[in-house]
C-alpha cells in the first residue's frame, strides 16, 4: 500500500488535562519556531521599550518630581517598574495580530477541524508570547542596569516582582487573543490591540506620581490594574523614592495582592470569552 492509504495508527488515549497541555505545547512550539524565523519582529519588540527607557529617563528625568525628590536617579528607579509593566502589556498586540493572521490564512480552520483540546490554539499562542515577553524583560532589565537602575531588596522579592509582571502580561495577552479573533485583518488586530493601551498605561502611576493627577484621573489611576502591578514592583524592587506618599486607595496599600487578584480576574474573564469566541469563529 502506498503512503496515501496507510492504515491509521490507533490514537493514543487522551486524558482531558494531559491532552490540553500537550496540544498547547505543540502550538506554543510552532509559534516559537515562527518567532525565531521572523527575528525582526522580536527585535522591534525590544527596541520600543528600550527607546521609552532612554526617552523618559533623559527627557523627563530632570523635570518630573516623584515624592519629594527631584533627583534624576530617584526618577530613573521610579520609572523602571512603569516601563517594565508597559512592556509586558504590549504583548497584547502581538497575540492579537498573530491570531488574526492565523484566521486570515485559514490556519484556524485547519486547527478547528482537528481533534484538539478546546483552548489549545490560544493557550499555545499566549504561552509563546509569554516566552517572548520574558526575553524582552531580561534585555530591558540589562539596559536599565546599564543606565543606572538599581534594586534595593533581596533576590526573592525582585524575582517576585518579575513574576507579577509576567502574570500581568499573560493575562493581557488573552485580551489580545479576543481582539485577534474579533477583527478581520491582522492590521486591525495590531492597532486595535495597541490603541487602548495608551490611556491604560498613561492614566496610571507608571510615569508620574499619581498623587499629582486631577481627582478623577487619580481615582482611575489608583484602581487601574496596571498601576497596582507597577506599585507592587516598586515595593518589591525597593524603588519608591524617599518621601513618597503611598495613596490611601486599597489597591495601592496592598499592591502585591491587588496585582495578583486583578491579573487572575482578567485572565479568567478573557480566557473564557476568547475560548468561546474561538469555538464559534466563522472566518
Amino acid at each position: 500500500m502506498s503512503a496515501v492509504t496507510r492504515t491509521a495508527p490507533a490514537p493514543r488515549p487522551a486524558g482531558g488535562i494531559g491532552k490540553s497541555v500537550r496540544d498547547s505545547l505543540v502550538i506554543a512550539r510552532r509559534n516559537l519556531i515562527r518567532m525565531s524565523r521572523i527575528p525582526e519582529m522580536v527585535l522591534f519588540g525590544l527596541i520600543q521599550p528600550v527607546m521609552f527607557v532612554v526617552l523618559f529617563t533623559y527627557v523627563f528625568g530632570g523635570s518630573i518630581q516623584v515624592g519629594g525628590s527631584l533627583s534624576s536617579q530617584d526618577y530613573r528607579e521610579f520609572l523602571m517598574a512603569g516601563i517594565f509593566a508597559q512592556t509586558v502589556t504590549f504583548a497584547t498586540a502581538g497575540a492579537g495580530a498573530g491570531i488574526a493572521d492565523d484566521m486570515h490564512k485559514g490556519l484556524i480552520d485547519r486547527f478547528r477541524s482537528l481533534p484538539m483540546a478546546r483552548g489549545a490554539v490560544l493557550t499555545g499562542r499566549t504561552v509563546a508570547d509569554l516566552v517572548q515577553t520574558a526575553l524582552t524583560l531580561v534585555v530591558l532589565a540589562l539596559v536599565a542596569l546599564l543606565i543606572g537602575w538599581r534594586t534595593h531588596e533581596n533576590v526573592g522579592k525582585i524575582l517576585a516582582g518579575f513574576a507579577l509582571l509576567l502574570l500581568l502580561g499573560y493575562a493581557f495577552s488573552w485580551i489580545g487573543a479576543l481582539i485577534g479573533l474579533s477583527v478581520r485583518t491582522p492590521e486591525a488586530a495590531t492597532s486595535g490591540g495597541l490603541i487602548w493601551l495608551f490611556p491604560l498605561t498613561f492614566i496610571s502611576n507608571a510615569f508620574v506620581d499619581s498623587n499629582n493627577l486631577p481627582t478623577f484621573f487619580r481615582h482611575i489611576a489608583e484602581w487601574n490594574p496596571f498601576s497596582t502591578t507597577v506599585q507592587a514592583c516598586r515595593e518589591l524592587f525597593g524603588n519608591l523614592p524617599p518621601g513618597f506618599k503611598t495613596p490611601d486607595a486599597w489597591p495601592m496599600q496592598h499592591p502585591v495582592l491587588a496585582s495578583v487578584l486583578w491579573s487572575i480576574l482578567i485572565l479568567v474573564v478573557f480566557r473564557t470569552l476568547a475560548v468561546r469566541k474561538y469555538r464559534s469563529a466563522a472566518a
Binding site: 510552532r30 519556531i33 515562527r34 524565523r37 521572523i38 490564512k105 485559514g106 490556519l107 480552520d109 485547519r110 477541524s113
Partner: peptide, 13 residues
C-alpha cells in the same frame, strides 16, 4: 481530513 481552497499551512514552518 479537510483540505480547503486555501493552502492552510504555516508559511514560516
Amino acid at each position: 481530513g479537510l483540505s480547503g481552497q486555501f493552502a492552510a499551512v504555516d508559511e514560516y514552518l
